[in-house]
Design a protein around this nucleic acid. Structure first.
Lengths: 179, 179
DNA sequence: CATAATGGCCGAATGAAGTTCAGCATCAAC
DNA sequence: GTTGATGCTGAACTTCATTCGGCCATTATG
């Protein structure tokens, strides 16, 4: 049996979804990926080769996208963080807006639902550089308006957590959501 | 001479700011921190021990905050990304709002300038779980209103880039900014 | 100018870790 | 029960991280 029961299943990587041990491993590696397989095995109750095997599988399957150095923004002269909401004519990927991804200041580009179209997360050296970036956004064809939010201070900033989703019990008298 | 020319200089880590070679190293490690020091040295034109020494210094100085596994949100059952703007009575760190950082769905908490106070980045399994999280935010003391933006699709998402800030030439006829 | 001190790099050696492999246990399917 | 697949362990081997002595360039100092 090589197919999922699901039926529709595109580019399945190496099958099998993450179990409790995998989540433990991810939890450790999110905190510190420089740990040795021996220590990782101790943390999750596995021998070094077994831990290694699971990490390899998590990489192959794409659960671990990459192992990266997390840089202090201040160290690379980008202490100023801002979010930018952009209204555009039409949704989705426009070549002009994607061009701004060439700038190292732009970290995220999302298409959002709400009263705005696109949302950007950017980091700059100072307000002057942010002004320049916003100016380029204003001049981008298709952009009708922008609103920017400068971050005063950041209280939490961390990568994707492997922890399970918090349960939210549904009251009995409430209808179950359809999907 | 042990002090900076700057004068005011708090908790200086190991001195010396990042040079061009350091930025190259950071650029490589942001892409892939599993690289060996031998290969890293080849990429930046250094011997393995020299590359090792610089990486150690970048860690000590805090330029490299950590080395972490980047997890695919879908792999840990959090495919839904949303941003939440919150209006509160007063700014800054409130214990109640900080309590939500216990939830693994909450990835970022920022205090922002603009017509809103706090900005959150959250990931949930589905709209149902997002509803639960928003409900908890509504019930948080001090929160007067919230606006949430569900991300339809993400076009760019990457960590802090070591690339230099893009230059934005000031026209001659314009006044120079005061700061 | 001469000298000493500092910081950074290289090459070699050592130790520790990553990586592979054969064998075994467990479980599901037949 | 038998077969096949999956995952684990312990030992082996290989690669890499890490340390050290020495060299060179730069910079402070007499």
């Amino acid at each position: 049996m090589d197919e999922e029961t699901d039926g529709i299943q595109r580019n399945r990587p190496t099958a099998r979804d993450v179990d409790a041990t995998d989540r433990k491993i991810l939890g450790v590696l999110v905190d510190d990926a420089t740990i040795s397989y021996a220590d990782l095995g101790d943390r999750v109750g596995l021998s070094p080769p077994a831990a290694h095997e699971r990490v390899k599988r998590l990489r192959r399957s794409g659960a671990i996208r990459s192992t990266a150095a997390i840089i202090d923004p201040k160290a690379v002269k980008k202490p100023l963080l801002a979010f930018v909401h952009i209204d555009t004519k039409g949704w989705g990927k426009t070549p002009e807006l994607m061009a701004v991804s060439q700038y190292p200041e732009v970290e995220e580009i999302h298409s959002v639902a709400g009263d705005t179209c696109m949302l950007l997360k950017v980091r700059t050296e100072d307000t002057r550089a942010l002004e320049g970036l916003l100016s380029r956004l204003y001049e981008t064809p298709g952009v009708t308006s922008t609103r920017s939010y400068v971050v005063l201070s950041t209280y939490l900033e961390r990568p994707v957590q492997p922890g399970i989703t918090t349960e939210w019990p549904t009251p009995r008298h409430m209808a179950q959501p359809l999907y």
